[in-house]
């Protein structure tokens, strides 16, 4: 009995972390589909979300909701600057240069955050208290509920955006065939910029909702970013739902692995899964296989 309680506990915390991975993975997939770029700086926007919210809360004494809105706004602005200064100047760049540029950006953002906020970890107060809830013998914090709810809202909202708004449809058209899209008058440049904006906004939101649970520091973005990428890879980089399932799956495997095998190797689990998938099925578990054309 105790054992199964424990397992439920692992599942819960796995789902909660998994939601965050799914959101970050979403950010990866959005940029990848618009540009073919894997943005190695994705995780830094997650860090920025948490750090900026804490900054606005503590320094300007703003109410939580305002601080969150401002943090998302600033992160998005940084995403815009990043795209304009580092991505747009490179026309027809090789994947190698793009990898290096986005890594450069990630180091730069991380370094700047360290200079501004120092190396300490910071805590964001939970959105609605710390009194645990009990569910089937497992405990859960209200923040976990916030994570589930907000993840669902963000994912549904982006689904609606991509399928029912003119911008969303235009972005999907670009992802499908950017040449054809530009022929029918869609500005591919604008869509690329938009993808960076949405992606950094979603990333920062993910960082904000997880911050009360995990503490935030300037270097938290690397690991979270990589795990988000892992979620996106499981999902095949394109299918929206695939990434969500990928994230949740990763979260659960990680938390079960940490609980039942060894907590020290928790972080390794994501990367082992990542390697296995890249080796065996690089198009993802839920992705479609593409016919290679020369």
């Amino acid at each position: 009995m105790e054992n199964s309680d424990q397992i439920i506990q692992y599942l819960l915390s796995g789902l909660s972390n998994g939601s965050i991975y799914a959101l970050i993975g979403f950010g990866f997939a959005i940029i990848y589909n618009a540009t073919g770029i894997i943005n190695f700086a994705q995780g830094e926007f997650v860090m920025l979300g948490g750090m900026l919210t804490i900054f606005f809360l503590n320094v300007f004494r703003l109410p939580l909701i305002t601080a969150i809105a401002l943090a998302v706004g600033v992160s998005t602005a940084i995403g815009i600057v990043f795209e304009r200064l580092a991505i747009r100047p490179l026309k027809n760049a090789s994947p190698l240069s793009l990898v290096i540029i986005t890594i450069g950006a990630s180091i730069l953002i991380r370094g700047a955050a360290m200079l501004v906020w120092g190396k300490d970890t910071h805590a964001l107060p939970p959105f609605s208290g710390n009194d645990p809830l009990y569910l089937m013998g497992a405990t859960m914090l209200p923040q976990n509920l916030w994570i589930f709810a907000l993840t669902a809202v963000i994912i549904i909202a982006s689904k609606l955006f991509f399928h029912y708004t003119i911008f969303g449809k235009a972005m999907r058209a670009c992802a499908f065939n950017s040449q054809a899209a530009s022929l029918v008058g869609i500005s591919v440049k604008t869509m690329v910029l938009l993808s960076f904006m949405i992606s950094s906004a979603i990333g920062s939101l993910a960082g904000i909702i997880i911050a009360p649970l995990t503490m935030t520091s300037y270097d938290m973005g690397i690991m979270l970013g990589l795990k988000g990428f892992c979620a996106a890879i499981i999902g095949g980089m394109s299918s929206g739902l695939g990434t969500v399932i990928g994230g949740l799956l990763l979260g659960i495997l990680e938390s079960l692995g940490a609980g039942l095998i060894s907590s020290g190797y928790k972080d390794a689990i994501a990367f082992i899964i990542l390697l296995i998938i890249l080796f065996l099925r690089p198009e993802g578990v839920f992705g479609k296989k593409e016919t290679e054309r020369v």
Binding site: I233, A268, P282
Partner: peptide, 24 residues
């Protein structure tokens, strides 16, 4: 067998796994 971004991610993943092993 992997190219570009995927190669970058796979080598990165390998590096981190080895790093975790050193620590653990």
């Amino acid at each position: 067998k992997l190219k570009g971004h995927y190669l970058a991610m796979a080598t990165l993943g390998f590096g981190i796994i080895v790093y975790i092993i050193f620590n653990e």
